[in-house]
């Protein structure tokens, strides 16, 4: 120890001249090097966030320029809460979120389990097939579905009515379950179901992949132990697979909650940007968009976005309470 200190060369003072950035004791350089993140985050993350919060307390007709902002306090929030269009859009969002979200997970988990246990060679192909909708453009998907669900020329109606009109001995034997006339899927009573179906179809593969990756982390031993313990296939699924999937389920359900509450593209394109007849397919995010860009009320739109944020945060917290309990 002593020998080392005695041998060490006396500290050499850094040259005053030379490269500014490499000079020892430069207090600016480190901040300079870490600044890109903060600049980008500030400009694209923090500023819009704070600006929209600021905006939500103002009335602003944007075409009139920044100077036209007018402080209105909580009026935008109060208006949004009392606005039956907003209430309706929240209701629509909730219904679509549930109708598309619950089947998504109810199907994705068993499907993942099935793929996990039944496929070896074709597994990646099968996963790929289920994953394709997720990476396909929403516009293309929505256009295909509006064509499929077209009243007079859509394949869905063709199949349904041909079943409904299926005749044995002059009797339409299936007419009690299938329609005999074309269904107008743009009717408000069907709008939400159609959107939910498209959303469900689109994201079920994504969730399957999430659950599949979680399944692969469950040790084989646990299943073998369960087999020895006399658990049948269902009991293995119920008592081993499901509890082991809980952390992933928490993650996947959180993503679904956030995604479904921000649902915009699918309903926007399916309803042609209007929300459909009787606004039956108008989601909260669409309402926000229309408030901002059609009605030119950016203040109220910001308030809506913050209300939406609070709802999402609340539901995520609730989800954490239900599914997020730590197991490991």
């Amino acid at each position: 120890m002593n020998s080392i200190t005695s041998q060490s060369v006396p500290h050499k003072a850094p040259a005053k001249k030379g490269n500014f950035w490499l000079r020892k004791g430069n207090k600016i350089a480190p901040y300079f090097f870490i600044s890109p993140f903060f600049i980008i985050f500030g400009v694209f993350g923090l500023f819009p966030l704070l600006f929209s919060l600021y905006l939500s307390f103002h009335y602003w007709e944007p075409a009139a320029g920044l100077a036209a902002m007018e402080w209105v306090g909580l009026e935008n929030y109060i208006f949004a809460f009392q606005d039956d269009w907003f209430q309706k859009s929240i209701y629509n969002t909730g219904v679509i979120a549930l109708k598309s979200g619950i089947p998504q997970h109810a199907l994705a988990i068993p499907l993942a389990f099935f793929i996990h246990t039944s496929f070896t060679r074709w597994r990646n192909t099968v996963i790929g097939v289920y994953f394709i909708p997720y990476i396909t453009s929403t516009v293309a998907i929505s256009l295909v579905f509006t064509t499929l669900f077209s009243r007079d020329f859509g394949m869905v109606n063709q199949v349904l009515t041909s079943l409904g009109n299926f005749t044995i001995a002059d009797m339409k034997v299936l007419s009690w379950i299938f329609p005999v006339e074309n269904i107008d899927w743009t009717r408000p009573e069907y709008t939400k179901d159609m959107i939910s179906f498209v959303v469900f179809w689109r994201y079920v593969g994504w969730n399957t992949v999430l659950y599949l990756s979680a399944l692969q982390t469950i040790p084989r031993d646990l299943y073998e132990a369960a087999i020895i313990d006399g658990a049948n296939r269902y009991q293995q699924f119920r008592y081993v697979t499901l509890p082991m999937l809980k952390p992933m389920a928490f993650f996947a359900v959180t993503l679904t909650i956030i995604g479904n509450l921000q649902l915009f593209e699918e309903p926007f394109i399916i309803t042609g940007g209007t929300g459909g007849i009787d606004q039956a397919g108008k989601t909260a995010a669409m309402h926000m968009y229309i408030t901002a860009f059609v009605e030119s009320d950016f203040g109220t739109a910001s308030a809506i976005s913050w209300i939406l944020f609070m709802i999402i945060a609340g539901l995520t917290w609730l989800n954490h309470k239900v599914l997020g309990g730590s197991n490991h």
Partner: peptide
């Protein structure tokens, strides 16, 4: 396995972590 009336202890113990 259940009909064989055997019991097994695994190398990894294979305890059910959530129980």
């Amino acid at each position: 396995p259940i009909e064989r009336n055997i019991a097994m202890v695994f190398q990894s113990y294979a305890l059910y972590p959530h129980m």
